[in-house]
Design a protein around this nucleic acid. Sequence first.
DNA 1: TCTAATCGTAACTACATAAGTTACATGAAA
DNA 2: TTTCATGTAACTTATGTAGTTACGATTAGA
Lengths: 147, 147
Amino acid sequence: MKRDSRLSSVLHALLHMHEADGPMTSETLAKCLGTNPVVVRRTMGLLRKTGIVTSDRGPAGGWRIAADLRTVTLRQLHAALGEPAFFAIGNRNETPECLVEQAVNAALDDTFIKAEALLLERFSQITLADLAADFSRRYAERRRQGA
Amino acid sequence: MKRDSRLSSVLHALLHMHEADGPMTSETLAKCLGTNPVVVRRTMGLLRKTGIVTSDRGPAGGWRIAADLRTVTLRQLHAALGEPAFFAIGNRNETPECLVEQAVNAALDDTFIKAEALLLERFSQITLADLAADFSRRYAERRRQGA
DNA sequence: TCTAATCGTAACTACATAAGTTACATGAAA
DNA sequence: TTTCATGTAACTTATGTAGTTACGATTAGA
């Protein structure tokens, strides 16, 4: 099963945009991510709808961050992407008549609901500013080691 | 992305086998699950490899549970199925050069590793006997309510 | 106004994987 | 020997992200 890597992609893109002076084009971002400009536009377009980024056409156009990094959480980004499913495992039938299957679903649902709550909770606590700070630490560390 | 429902399926099948007197055929199990006998054989075959069930060919053949329900956990069943991925979301690139992407991966990995640990922990605490008992409660409840 | 840069988007292909299906070989019981 | 049942290969279907091609729309600047 192919994994959805859009959250990873937009985080990567947003941090590069944060480091950049002006707007970044889909072309440039695509090179950073190792993908295609159309994929970038398609995915970033979802963030534009919620006001996290803006885009401008024409020469000197491109993508810019439109929000304070301290206020944008991973949870908001996940929501902006349409809240894709976290889990690759699920029930065979969500509303079964069979009592056996109801017992099975109850056990699995209980577990997955708790795991999803944990994920959402953590996602709501991590901001873009946190990631930017972590990048800065890694950058300083690499320079310190002369790499 | 299509969800893997094999764990749900084998749990459903195992509880029906537990309730049954003798062995159950792939045909019968397929009807319980609303699927195809070949799918049943393919999936149950994975459990046979780890000794959780046995199968016999010929007339009066079929599938039987070969383990004590109190000793079989959801974690063991997940392992028997080949430890399919829990998450439908992942990193774009698992071993990036880019420091930005490393920071992104670190944040996501930290969250997903903790969630996976929670899932495995809970799965290791739930046995087939627990599910069978829950089914019995539901069954008694339905009878009590005259349904 | 013309040109080039850039996004917006439709339409199609590629890919991965569980599930479903068909077909047939293998083996066991009566 | 017949029948029932599993074992398994091979193929199709379903689903959704990712990748690609193509082209229209918009904008800055000469």
